[in-house]
């Protein structure tokens, strides 16, 4: 691969990551991947009215409450991140 090509390829993926939150890459950690999955799921539940109704019926809550709790969960859906290895 010529150095020029590599350069353009990188900017493209960088651009992709900046533009589309949640786009994966080769070195994604399990935590990051899972967090993105959960955030996508929460957003999907809020964005599809039948799914929000479905959960509200199962849980005995109002749809407004279900959506609110889903949005709150998006902040940290899978708990705090694992400690970083400094080595």
């Amino acid at each position: 691969m010529s150095s020029e090509l590599r350069y353009t390829a990188n900017t493209q993926t960088e651009h992709l990551h900046a533009r589309y939150t949640g786009t994966g890459h080769a070195d994604v950690t399990k935590y990051d991947w899972l967090t993105h999955q959960h955030r996508d799921t929460c957003a999907s539940i809020v964005g599809h009215p039948p799914l929000a109704s479905y959960l509200a019926i199962a849980d005995g809550e109002s749809i407004g409450r279900v959506k609110f709790e889903m949005m709150e969960r998006m902040l940290q859906p899978c708990g705090p991140p694992p400690p970083k290895d400094d080595d």
């Binding site: 967090t35 998006m74 902040l75 940290q76 708990g79 705090p80 991140p81």
Partner: peptide, 15 residues
């Protein structure tokens, strides 16, 4: 709500 700090903080304090 900004989640960038909570995503980086393993202690959970930022969250």
């Amino acid at each position: 709500v900004d989640y960038s700090e909570s995503d980086q903080d393993p202690t959970g304090e930022a969250f």
